[in-house]
Design a protein around this nucleic acid. Sequence first.
DNA 1: CAGCTGTTTTACCATATGGTAAAAAGCACT
DNA 2: AGTGCTTTTTACCATATGGTAAAACAGCTG
Lengths: 188, 188
Amino acid sequence: MKQLIDYILQYGHLNEEQINFVIQRSKVISLQKDECFSQPGKIPRQVGFVLEGVFRGHYYTNDGEDVTRCFIGENSLMVDYVNFEAQTVATEYLQACTDAQLIVFSKQSWDELSEKIESWDNIKNKMVQLCMYQKSRTGPVVSQDATTRYLEFINNYPTLINRVPLTYIASYLGVTQQSLSRIRKNIH
Amino acid sequence: MKQLIDYILQYGHLNEEQINFVIQRSKVISLQKDECFSQPGKIPRQVGFVLEGVFRGHYYTNDGEDVTRCFIGENSLMVDYVNFEAQTVATEYLQACTDAQLIVFSKQSWDELSEKIESWDNIKNKMVQLCMYQKSRTGPVVSQDATTRYLEFINNYPTLINRVPLTYIASYLGVTQQSLSRIRKNIH
DNA sequence: CAGCTGTTTTACCATATGGTAAAAAGCACT
DNA sequence: AGTGCTTTTTACCATATGGTAAAACAGCTG
């Protein structure tokens, strides 16, 4: 739980009472590998904070290809935020790549934080916006070749390489797993 | 100016007095083709709203390659928002691809909107977050081949194709301009 | 209209990546 | 250890894209 509080306090100050209120509104849950935190066609019901484990955002193209759009590791917010706030249906999966532990807030609890904590909206929006901003800067870049994308991936997510299947990494980098395997061989 | 007000009112209600206050704090400016709205190493001083013209966000890689990360057309917000709010230096250019007209708000004016208009922060954050969200969904996808990326680009930005140089579109799609030229030939 | 300048197209070859298939390696369960 | 699963690696060929260079085109100016 300290992980979450430390994370939040990066974005603004909370007094002890407010911290306790946040904790009181939260809930710890576990998800097993391959379970989904949210799914296309369903309204996202919770904001998550990853304590342990790795998730990926992904979807299927019309011709059935599995495309990984992002990875979310420990000490990160995880939520389809726009659809969560608007309570509209998601278009992607958020799937556990490993067994995982999360802190979650229901929509109701999340809204109560705004009502009860003066500075919460400010903190919340900074968190969400920085989160979106960083995601937009760490994704694979179309103009780079596959090897460069792989090397940058390792740089951006050094702890993931041994924890998620190669297929997911390949589908994140936009190459086939055969190509990624070849790329790895050529590097080492 | 009506364009801006219509845009804002999509995200929440403002009464006449509040609308006038927004207008009063705004300023219309013109930029010529190739001028920059913001630049790496400089702190973004203004939020922009594009009335007329097309902009692109771009940067240079270590080996001098010009990479276009996004296009911004009419009736869109344009700002390096995270760096604008934090008043930290930008890492990219926002450059006019055509002669352009903008409505702009200085940091001070933008903050005054929050102070004077009760519902402004709510509207503002919805605008910014939706803007970031949409950008993350309209960009070229690494797992698609160049032809598909080009076709999706035309779909997402049908009005841009004749207004910005081919080089910029190529650098957005992550292909050389020669390849893009060949792709266009094969399509038609 | 001629002469510049910058943009877009074409051509040629080299190479990275995809598609398909099969082999190898890793892992769980008995 | 052996049997079935999934994941990863290898191999082969086909093809899309990159790199380099030159030609064609378009817009501007005198």
